[in-house]
Design a protein around this nucleic acid. Structure first.
Lengths: 119, 119, 119, 119
DNA sequence: GTGGTCTAGACCACG
DNA sequence: GTGGTCTAGACCACC
């Protein structure tokens, strides 16, 4: 896993976990990698993984069972969708529309670009 | 002018200046507000404005003339477009497409949303 | 470390760092002194060191790693050489040749002076 | 006349005057352009020219005759040579030698470069 | 008046 | 501990 410089690493880890859940690679109720395990895996300070997990726990996306590990929470999928959707609607989309206006780009070009990508 | 918490103020000021140039409210070769003037205007420490200006000068979007002030650089429009376009293509757009995939949103919905906004 | 009055301190600090890298006292990938550390060391405000480091990062000579510190960048040596060489060819050398012409100094005298210095 | 951004304009004007004297284009005792005249000529604020002249007067390179104008001083040539020579020996040369050391450039290359230039 | 540098000190987020 | 941002205020050189 390689990290962007602009975003905090713990947030990028959280994004990664979220993604696995949304793609249903990790299912509700199932155990996820332990802090240490993941830390070794992605070459990061365990504290940083811990922080990502704490962040996700606060958002009700994972939960901890003392002495056992972290698990995908009940309704994790729903919560994760909500969070991503919120970001999408109130940040990503307006940001994109603004840039489009400044650059004089029309929506058709975006659609075109999108179709190209799918191939 | 009110600032978001997430992004550094000096970068938001830089964005603002860039925007004025892209919208051609401020034309190439013309003087822009002095550091102190803008600082008072937007209720910010002059150092912060200075930092924004220094940043934009580095990007060849504005120029300084000793003891006189800052001016919109030659080709500022071109440079600004390049920067915004680069961000758009390599950050905003991929980010949006990724979110769309995770959320199962189709491009039609984006277009619809876009048309709504225009009204 | 003592500073000339004519040149900004932060630029002199940048020069110093560059020098260490060019002399290979500081190697690519290795950590350099932290902002605070160096600030104490050379009796300067941390902000000033920060400014020097930010300047060098812009030039791709050093890199920051969140919460850890600054490191000599990949290819730092190459970039530093390029910058110094550019200055040398387009500023120092023409300036010297011009002065030589005005003063009626011949190149032999320079060589002589150079040999003297080496002893 | 076009100015470098790095050096104060009034100093560049002073350099220009010095150069004319060293090249003996302007001879001792002869009148030099008036402040206004030169200001118009090189598209600069008269205050800036004034400052350059004041600077040169202080260095005994030009002198003012009230109501008449500025003249190349007695011994101007000698004074100018001294100033340029001092700068050359204590600034330009050491600076060049230092860069040469950092870049691993040998004196032969400089001589070669110099000969090339002459052609 | 303009830009530009520096200091001092506070505060935050990150690892 | 690390970098990074911001404020406040002083001081300088330049036009």
């Amino acid at each position: 896993m390689d990290f962007e410089k602009k975003k905090a690493i713990y947030l990028q880890i959280a994004d990664y976990v979220c993604e696995q859940i949304l793609l249903q690679n990790w299912l509700e109720g199932k155990k996820i990698p332990s802090v240490r395990e993941l830390a070794v895996d992605i070459q990061v300070n365990p504290n940083t993984v811990m922080r990502a997990y704490a962040y996700l726990e606060e958002k009700n996306i994972i939960e901890t069972q003392r002495g056992i590990g972290y698990f995908v929470a009940n309704l994790a999928l729903k919560h994760a969708v909500n969070i991503v959707k919120h970001e999408f609607i109130f940040q990503d989309l307006p940001q994109m529309f603004k840039s489009m206006k400044l650059l004089g780009i029309e929506i058709d070009q975006i659609v075109e670009h999108y179709e190209m990508r799918k191939k």
